[in-house]
Amino acid sequence: MSVGLAQAMGLQFTQDWKLAVRSRSDWANPMIFFVLVITLLPLGIGPEVKQLAAIAPGMIWIVALLATLLSLDAMFRSDWDDGSLEQMLISPHPLPMLVLSKIAVHWLVTGLPLTLLSPLLGLMLSLPEAGYLPLIVSLFIGSACLSFIGAIGAALTVALRQGGLLISLIIMPFYVPVLIFGASAAMRAVQGFEYHGLLVMLGGFLALAVAGAPFAVAAALRISSEG
C-alpha cells in the first residue's frame, strides 16, 4: 500500500499527537517545572512587587526556555528506543517532512501550553498590564523557534545515553537570539516603547527555523542511526 506525502505526514502527525497526549509526563512535566521555578523566584530574591515586575518578562522567558530544553530529550527518544524512528528513516517519504510533523507535535505539547500558562505566571510576578500581550505573542512564536532549533540537538544526541545535559550544552547558544528578541519585546512593552519590530524579527527566525531545521534534523538522525 502506498500513501502520498500529505497522507503520510497526516498519519505521522496523528500518531505522534496521540502518543504525546497519552504520555502525561511529556507535556505535564515542563509545565510543572515552569510554575515551580517561577515560584522559587520570589523566594530567592524577595517578594517586592517592583523588583519582581522589573525582571518578570526576562525570567518568564528564561524559565520557558529551560523548560523546553528539558523536554527536548523526549522528542525522539521513545521512537528511537522502539525502532519506529528507523521506519521513518527507511520510508520512501522525505525525512525532513516527517520530522516536521514530530517537531510540530512537540511544540503543541510543550511550547503552546507554556505560552498559555505564561499570563498566570505574569500575574504571580506582578507583570505590568502592558506586558501581557507581547509576552504571550513572543512566547507563541518564540517557543516554536525553540522546538525547531532544539530538535537539532535532540536528533544529534538521540543515540547517546547521557543525552539530557548535552542537549542543553550544545543548543543553548543557539537560543540566544530567540531569547533576546522574545524577552526584549515584553520588556520594551512594559517600558512603553514600540515592540512590533522585535516580534517581526522573531517571526523571521521562525520562518528560517521551519525552512532549515528539518533538514539538519534529518541529517542528524541519519548520522545517529549509523552507529
Binding site: 537539532i152 544529534l156 544526541t157 543515540a159 547517546l160 547521557q162 548535552l166 550544552l169 550544545i170 543548543i171 543553548m172 547558544p173 539538519a216 541529517a219 542528524a220 548520522i223 545517529s224 549509523e226 552507529g227
Partner: peptide, 24 residues
Amino acid sequence: YLGIMALQVSFTNQQQAASASTIL
C-alpha cells in the same frame, strides 16, 4: 566551541562523532 567539543567526545564511533559535530 565547548558544545562542539562536548558532542565530539560523547560519541565512541569516530565517524559518527565527526559527522555529528559537523552538523552542529
